[in-house]
Amino acid sequence: MAATDYLRKRFMPHIWCPGCGHGIVLNSLLRAIEKLGMEKNDVVMVSGIGCSSRIQGYTDFHTLHTLHGRALAFATGVKLAKPEVNVLVPMGDGDALAIGGNHFIHAARRNIDITAIIMNNSTYGMTGGQYSPTTACGDLASTAPYGTVGKPFDVVALARAAGATYIARTTTYHARAMTRILTDAIKHHGFSVVEILSQCPTYYGRENDRGDAVEMMEWYRDNTVAIKPDESGPINSACNGEEAPLPIGVFVNRSEPEYCDSYAKLVREKVLS
């Protein structure tokens, strides 16, 4: 099946702005699913609210468009009730880490077999460019006219501390690597987190003088550095104006008991025996 066959064209045209990085994520995601040889009926996609969360509507899978921040909680119900399905949860940075932050760390802690894709554009695009939990200190936003106060989350460090068993970071510039990472993340049996830096030229880019979409993607090219496994690093977390190159790659990939398996095993051993 060609990657484009997974598209649900009835939903087109999409709502994303010209230059938005989310289309590149959709492209890489469908190519990963194609590479894995998955049927449309094999995939359940659960999303929340925001620009990124509209990605589920454009795919011809089992699609559940839920509430802001709550996608992982809905997905947990789906996965526990029907462990045989592949559950993908695309989210934005505000969706996953602000309003949904609690669900994110708990899904990671459980190591439930869900693929969480965080499309991080450091802004709330759908509501017009407010600062998010990943907006760098000092960056401008429509609710930060004098600059953002407070440190941004480092998604990799957060996911690692919470217990996710597959953690990777990539960018829309690195589209081919993104496909490889998403393929591995979907294959991974456990909670996998893929952070994808995705440009928002309309709000974040314009508010912070980052140029157009191409310039923003070139910034990803010039300000990232591939890591060896088990390295990590902060995203501009120091408020000193210095920007360290952002590590990208696969940070964690280890095997641990998965939640649905563990529950089933517990019931077999303690209840049914």
Partner: peptide
């Protein structure tokens, strides 16, 4: 399952109910 809060509880319930 004991979820992380009541919001997640009802969300999981809806997800599970949808599956049948």
């Amino acid at each position: 399952i004991q979820m992380e809060d009541e919001i997640a509880s009802l969300a999981a319930v809806i997800g599970a109910s949808l599956t049948g």
